[in-house]
């Protein structure tokens, strides 16, 4: 795993402790994807409080935290699914705070929702085609890449997506998102409700995708396993940055382990 130079161990209390609070952002050299000091929520009350999430190209960034910590909300805020009252979102340095989710798709973001993330009464292939709806060029190459990544989908490409198993549906969902050839892939709890074996398999695929240079941002309930594959991890509590460090250091911190990873 690559060491992140951007984030320094602010507390300086030895290698075993993870950095507390939000990441330090260098304004002259911002990370590829950045949700900076985001504040907002669905109703009148704020869920996110000055929450900052950053992700780099070719890396897997994972957001973890207890229930109700605002993990999914943070991701949705980055994708433009809720209005921010403060803060901004940038991609490659470009401010996209005012864009709708659809417009962000055109900017290279792809989002895999936690549930209802496929078109159940359409075939696997049609699901992928719909993923590429905005593209006017030949999509056969991208589709072949997705099939290489998920060979089982090629096998079942004429089957209805709704008839597949849970793990296969997640593959369809990820594959659909990849069809736009995004630079950022965002996954909301991709392993919710799948078996441990399927989860490992899915994480392997996600690592593979990251290696091709995509920015991966993922919210995970299975924090320990997710941090194992994460380059960077964010621990959120009540909509605030609690810890921010590499996956390995978060896993090594006894305090983080005890409070958030179940010992």
């Amino acid at each position: 795993m690559s060491e992140d130079t951007l984030i320094e161990n602010g507390t300086g209390e030895g290698a075993m402790r993870a950095r507390e609070g939000a990441p330090l952002i260098d304004p002259d050299n911002p990370p590829f994807l950045l949700g900076d000091s985001m504040r907002g929520g669905y109703g009148a009350a704020d869920i996110l409080h000055e929450c900052t999430i950053a992700a780099e190209k070719g890396q897997i960034t994972v957001i973890v935290g207890p229930n109700g910590a605002g993990k999914s909300t943070a991701m949705k805020a980055i994708f433009g699914m809720l209005d921010l009252r403060a803060g901004k979102v940038t991609i490659g340095g470009k401010d996209i705070t005012g864009l709708s989710p659809q417009e962000r798709v055109a900017e290279g973001m792809a989002f895999v929702p936690q549930t209802n993330n496929i078109f159940p009464s359409m075939t696997v292939e049609e699901n992928l085609e719909m993923g590429a709806f905005l593209r006017r060029d030949d999509i056969a190459g991208t589709m072949e890449e997705v099939y290489e990544l998920f060979p089982v989908l090629k096998e079942k490409r004429h089957q209805l997506a709704g008839e597949l198993s849970g793990g296969q549906r997640q593959q369809v969902a990820v594959g659909r998102a990849l069809m736009t050839r995004p630079t950022v892939l965002m996954l909301d709890e991709p392993t919710a409700g799948v078996s441990p074996i399927v989860m490992d398999e899915l994480f392997d695929r996600i690592i593979e995708i990251a290696r091709t240079g995509l920015t991966i941002l993922m919210v995970e309930q299975n924090a320990r396993q997710a941090l194992e594959i994460a380059d960077m991890g964010y621990v959120l509590v009540q909509g605030r940055n609690r810890y921010t460090d590499t996956g390995a250091r978060l896993l090594a911190d006894p305090e983080v382990r005890r409070s958030f990873l179940g010992g």
Partner: peptide
């Protein structure tokens, strides 16, 4: 057809259709 499929997609899962740019 692309348009026909986008109609089915919309009928199937409105939110995801929006995410796909339909």
């Amino acid at each position: 057809t692309r348009t026909g499929k986008s109609m089915r997609a919309y009928s199937d899962n409105e939110d995801l259709a929006l995410l796909s740019g339909i």
